[in-house]
Amino acid sequence: MGMVSEFKEFISRGNVVDLAVGVVIGAAFGKIVSSLVDGIVMPLVGLLLGGVKFGDLAVTLRAAELDAAGKEIAPALLLKYGAFLQTTIDFLLIAFVIFLVLKAYNRVRAPAPAAATPEDILLLREIRDSLKK
């Protein structure tokens, strides 16, 4: 079997195609949730915290160095923890939304409980089993 035919067999399996579709949809879904976080959730959280924008939160480790004319020689060294907080909140919200979607999907996909077997079928099975003996 040649490499081309092996590759064709591999790529035509359902799992590979399903995975590719899942990755593409997941990337688009991640963009939607990131937009939700950046455009709606974080501004509301910032408003509740007194107008703070999370992306701008930072600790100055070293101030910018200026020359005699006031021109910047070396930029300030900042520890930008706000961007980290915002990314962490993005991740948690995306994970929570995916959890909710999967929970709803599993509820819809759960197999229906088996219906009770009617009495006449049970009686016919008993007759069949007794005739086999």
Rank of each mutant, 00 (worst) to 15 (best):
M1Y: 15
M1P: 14
M3F: 13
M3Q: 10
V4N: 14
S5K: 14
E6N: 15
E6S: 15
E9M: 11
F10Y: 15
N15H: 13
N15C: 06
V17A: 10
V17Q: 09
D18Q: 11
A20M: 15
V23P: 03
A27G: 10
A27W: 12
A27D: 09
A28T: 09
V33E: 01
V33W: 00
S34M: 07
S35A: 10
V37P: 05
D38I: 01
G39W: 00
G39H: 03
G39D: 07
V41Q: 01
M42N: 05
P43G: 01
V45L: 13
G46R: 00
L47Q: 10
L47A: 15
L48T: 03
G50P: 02
G51S: 05
K53A: 08
L61E: 04
A64S: 09
A68E: 14
A69M: 09
G70M: 01
G70E: 03
I73Q: 10
A74E: 14
A76Y: 05
L78W: 04
Y81K: 04
G82F: 02
A83L: 10
F84N: 11
Q86C: 00
I89P: 00
I89V: 04
D90N: 13
L93T: 00
L93A: 00
I94M: 06
F96G: 08
F96E: 04
V101F: 09
L102T: 11
L102N: 14
K103A: 12
Y105H: 09
N106P: 04
R109A: 13
A110L: 06
P111I: 01
P113N: 06
A114F: 15
P118W: 01
R128F: 14
D129I: 03
L131R: 15
K132L: 13
